[in-house]
Simulated assay, not measured.
Amino acid sequence: MSGVGVQDWTWTIEAPAGWLVVPSTVTEPAETVGAWQGEAVELLLTSFLPQDSVGGAQPDAGHVELVRDSLTQTVASLVAFADEAATEGARAIAGLGLLDRGPVPVLVTVGMMDPAESDDALMTVLGATGGNPVNPVNPPSIEYPELPDGDGIQVTRVDIDEAGGAWVTVAVGRRTEHPEAVVDTALIWRSQDLVLVPTILETLVGLLSAVKIIRSEP
């Protein structure tokens, strides 16, 4: 994040168990991202293949390689998602094992503004406004969950794409006000997997605390 006044502001993600912070080739060396991809594939492989047991049959080698190839493509897609996010100053995280799904990508954004110019930018980022003017659906559902460090905002909305497909977006955010800055944090998930919505709603609210805003004095 950019600085306001004499303060320097940064933010990090301390991913809890079951979540991975996805690196981007936009902000990190290619070798670092490549090493992460290899580690992520092996981590996922252990969850997709049967666990060894005493006297149990070993997975077929050919099947293992097919799964590995599929997971390699999946992890590469996560990095591509992170690359796209990084161009906008955002980051990506991925949840593992949510309803037995593959890695579930979530966009993480943090924005800062002068308190004198505080507006409804967070509501816009979360999708509480705007949408598809051609195929409108019901207005976004907006709730205000209680967070450990204050009140949050939760937005659930459905949009129709040009092909007529329904896309659900779940976004949660918080606004933290400081004397010298207003800091907005948002987590956004978008998918056609409607079955996953209740789990994502519960998960993202708890995940907000993983995003740490750091202020350092000059």
Rank of each mutant, 00 (worst) to 15 (best):
R101V: 12
R101I: 14
G102L: 15
V104N: 11
P105V: 08
L107V: 11
T109Y: 10
V110E: 11
V110I: 14
V110S: 08
D114N: 13
P115L: 08
P115W: 05
A116G: 14
L122N: 05
L126D: 01
G127A: 03
P133D: 06
V134K: 04
N135R: 08
P136W: 02
N138V: 06
N138H: 13
P139D: 01
P139W: 00
S141H: 12
L147W: 03
P148Q: 07
P148I: 02
P148V: 04
D149P: 13
G152C: 03
I153L: 15
I153F: 12
I153K: 06
Q154P: 12
V155K: 01
T156G: 11
R157V: 10
I160K: 09
E162L: 13
A163M: 11
G165P: 07
A166Q: 14
W167M: 09
W167D: 05
W167C: 04
T169S: 07
T169L: 08
A171L: 11
V172D: 00
V172C: 02
G173N: 02
R174W: 11
R175T: 10
R175C: 09
R175N: 04
T176S: 14
T176E: 13
P179F: 10
E180F: 12
E180C: 14
V182Y: 02
V183Y: 00
D184I: 05
D184M: 04
A186H: 01
L187A: 01
W189S: 05
W189V: 02
R190T: 12
S191M: 07
D193K: 07
D193A: 10
L194Y: 13
L194N: 10
V195S: 15
V195P: 09
L196A: 08
P198E: 00
L201M: 08
E202D: 12
V205W: 02
G206R: 06
A210N: 09
K212L: 13
K212T: 13
